[in-house]
């Protein structure tokens, strides 16, 4: 499940916005300017079912998102949706993976404590016996220059 973010879980000064997510979910997001650097040498891995509900996360995912594994499992992946991410990026993601193709892009993710972290994400359909049974996303450390380019580009996509 996804709940409204609460001031007591947030660290630092925050802004508030209400996001409308897929499936009629509406969420109050509290977000700060505090960046958590991507850890060297690690991959952040998750899998979802066909509708984007989280079915598996690895340890790095738990550490970086700030949520517990229990909070993440069965939650929609938009639990990490940051207000600075343009909806067009996720439309492109879903259009691409629904067509059975691999998607790659740079994503700013929202932590439970209101902070954020940038990743380079690759999402692929999981095909078992010819049928798509879900999706896997693997994130790696992005280059700073690519992140800087996204910081300029993304605000123009709203």
């Amino acid at each position: 499940m996804i709940y409204d973010m609460k001031p007591e879980q947030v660290i630092g000064d925050y802004k508030e916005v209400r996001l409308d997510l897929f499936g009629g979910i509406s969420r109050v997001c509290l977000y700060t300017e505090i960046e958590t650097p991507y850890p060297d040498g690690k991959l952040i891995v998750s899998t979802t079912d066909n509708s984007g509900v989280i079915t598996h996360v690895n340890k790095s995912f738990v550490e970086m998102s700030g949520y517990t594994e229990d909070e993440l499992l069965n939650a929609p992946h938009s639990i990490l949706r940051h207000p600075d991410m343009p909806p067009a990026a996720f439309k492109d993601l879903w259009d691409t993976i629904s067509a059975g193709k691999k998607w790659q892009g740079y994503v700013k993710n929202l932590r439970k404590d209101g902070g954020y972290y940038w990743v380079k994400a690759t999402v692929i359909p999981n095909v078992r016996n010819g049928v798509v049974v879900g999706y896997t996303s693997v994130r790696r450390k992005p280059s700073r220059s690519k992140v800087e380019a996204c910081i300029k580009l993304y605000p123009t996509l709203f």
Partner: peptide, 10 residues
């Protein structure tokens, strides 16, 4: 299958 998918993303 999970590992194959992972290698594919990398």
């Amino acid at each position: 299958e999970f590992m194959i998918d992972l290698m594919d993303t990398l």
